[in-house]
Structures are given as structure tokens and as C-alpha cells.
Design a protein around this nucleic acid. Structure first.
Lengths: 179, 179
DNA sequence: CGCGACGTTGATTTGCCTCAACGATTGTGG
DNA sequence: CCACAATCGTTGAGGCAAATCAACGTCGCG
């Protein structure tokens, strides 16, 4: 990649620090920025009718985060993104992304790969819900986000798995006893 | 779009008919083709340890179908794609797709949109599994694939929802009684 | 220190599964 | 064209995994 292309990328990516519990996206706003997580941990979640939180995905170091629905349709999001730990991000907005896509072929290929990866991961997660038990999903969470289980509260993991904190606590006990 | 670009697209898309129960992709093969469904209905599914089928997604008229995991990594698929009705497809293989992407800008944009859409749909489906009941998921199935519920057996829908045919039968009865 | 957040455990309830049986419909080979 | 099998949807009975409701101990932090 030529130097000027690399420079363009670094110019368009805006560094941002987010403190724990701080929001990157609030429901009602349009998600106009993609976030690359260089440190810390983000969550994408939504609230149901009873005010309960449901986590759709995490993003740790090396992951990208976006609410794709809002980002794609330019409509107000029904979801939220916030930080579970103090985090360091690189943000890029839609127009900058389009510029990169047009003028830096290597970026275009890279980003297409990111998108395909994200899609493949999402399908794999659907597969778990359709066919796997809560325990299986927990084990896959452990390998998908290495070490994360020691960094965030158990009830956040339970929310991601679609079960209650109590159930996850019992699953953990089961696993520990069996091993 | 210039004529020669349009011609290139039609040249590279191969029409194919698939009879009911006929396979487009079998587990073990690499998914090298994308399928655009112009008529009929395909399913993407996998088998678990007990030999039970679990449907990850359907594709009806106007949808694209692929096993993105195998397609992306060029690895043997763990999944299957077959037809639930006699179907008409337009197939395009990986190399043809790359050619279109490079030489037809409009196609590149279109296809990026398709991918983003697919990703957004997958996230929405994850959202259902994390937070919604089987009944809610059934109602969303009805709006996502209009009319499909009259075209395929109930147990295929149940598999897609991650429940048993018996449960779906009872959910339907509930809905009918309440309405 | 006191309070809220967190994880665990117990008792009870519930949504969905499993097993089983049964009619209705579809499809097929003789 | 009919007989028989397979597929399909439904219903009932009983069981299990996870939810709910509730209580309690620990920890960290303002």
C-alpha cells in the first residue's frame, strides 16, 4: 500500500477514549460511525418491553462494532452501544468510509472481509441458538472472546447467552464439578 | 449501467433448476457458488450429533443464498443447502463474482448492499433468540417470508424457529384461539 | 463505614421437549 | 385405480431445563 493511502486511513480514523458505562450510541440516534476497538470492551444491546437488557454482541481488542441496521438504513437505532471497560477506539464515519473504499483498494478488500466475517459469525451464533444448549453457547463464548469472562460481570455474559445470571451460575458450577 | 456491463452480468450468471429435495450444497463440499433465487424456496441447514436437522435460513424469490462460512474460507462446509420446492436459481461462482466486482462498479455497490442486508437480518434474528419468545419468532417469520408458511411443511418452520413441530402446532392453536 | 453491585443457592413455576398415539393427506407401486 | 406406506399435523401425558421469586454473603467504592 502506497504511503499516501496509509496516511489517508490514519487521517480519517479518529481516536476516541470511552470510560466504563459511557455510551457510544444511544437508542434513537443514527449510528453514523464504525468503531474499531483497540483496547477495552464494548457491548451492543437492546431493551425489551420490561426494561431488561439483552446483549447482541461484544467487541474486544481487534473487533469492529456498529449497529448495522441503523448504519445501513440511516435510521434511528433501537439499540445501544456502551463500554464495559475503559476503552480505546478508532472511529470512522460513513462518508470517510466511502472515501477510503473508493480511493484505497486494499482498504476496500480488507473491509469487505471484515463484513463477511461479521456475517459468518452472526450465522454461527444463530446456529448455536437453533441447535445448541446454553452450556454449549457458554463454551463457545469462552473461545470466541478469550479471557473476557474474567473481565466483565457474569450477568453480562448471561444476557449475551440469552439466559438468566442464576442459570449461568449453575452452569458454571456444573462445569467445575465435572472437570 | 452500460450495455456491456449488463451483458457481462447475464453472461456470468448461470441459470439452474432444482427439483424439490435436490441438493445445491452437501456437507463436505466447498460452497463456491452464490445462488440468487428467482423462484421457489431453498433452505440452509445442518445436522446435529443426533442426526436432527436445524434450519438456519430460508431463501425465497428475490433472496440470495450461500453458506458464507465455507464460501469465505474456501473450506468444506458443515452445512447443506437444498430445495423445499422446485426452484429456479441464478448461480455465480467466486471467480465470476470477483470479475464483476472489479469491472462493474454498480454491481460492486449492489452486492455490498446485499451483504450488509444479510448481516443486518442475521443480527435481527440473533436479537429474537436472545430476547423474544417462540411465538414472537413465529410472527416475525410470517412477515419476513410472506406466504411461505402455506408453501412448506410446519415442521420445517419449527426447525427454523428452534422448537419442535408439536410446540409450533400448539402456538398456532393459541394464536388462532386468541384472534 | 454503609450502600450498591455482584454471585450464589434454594424453592417453585413454567415453557418447551419427549414419548406416544391418532386421523388425514399424499404419493406410489402393483 | 386401488391398496398400502409415508408424510404430516394434532393432541395428550409426563419430564426437564431454565425462569422466577426470594434470601443471603461478599466485595469494592464513594
Amino acid at each position: 500500500m502506497p504511503d499516501h493511502e496509509f496516511d489517508l486511513i490514519t487521517t480519517l480514523m479518529m481516536p476516541k477514549k470511552l470510560r466504563r458505562r459511557q455510551y457510544l450510541l444511544e437508542a434513537g440516534d443514527v449510528c453514523t460511525k464504525l468503531a474499531f476497538v483497540s483496547g477495552g470492551c464494548l457491548r451492543l444491546f437492546e431493551l425489551d418491553g420490561s426494561g431488561r437488557e439483552h446483549i447482541l454482541m461484544f467487541a474486544i481488542e481487534g473487533f469492529w462494532m456498529v449497529d448495522v441496521e441503523s448504519w445501513r438504513a440511516r435510521t434511528p437505532s433501537t439499540r445501544n452501544i456502551d463500554a464495559l471497560e475503559d476503552s480505546e477506539l478508532l472511529l470512522i464515519d460513513v462518508t470517510s468510509l466511502d472515501r477510503l473504499t473508493l480511493s484505497v483498494p486494499a482498504w476496500d478488500r480488507y473491509f469487505k472481509g471484515v463484513l463477511e466475517n461479521a456475517y459468518a459469525d452472526a450465522v454461527a451464533r444463530i446456529s448455536e441458538f437453533v441447535s445448541a444448549s446454553a452450556e454449549d453457547r457458554y463454551l463457545r463464548f469462552l473461545s470466541m472472546y478469550p479471557g473476557l469472562f474474567q473481565r466483565i460481570p457474569l450477568h453480562q455474559i448471561a444476557s449475551y447467552l440469552g439466559i438468566t445470571p442464576q442459570s449461568l451460575s449453575r452452569i458454571r458450577r456444573e462445569l467445575a464439578e465435572r472437570k
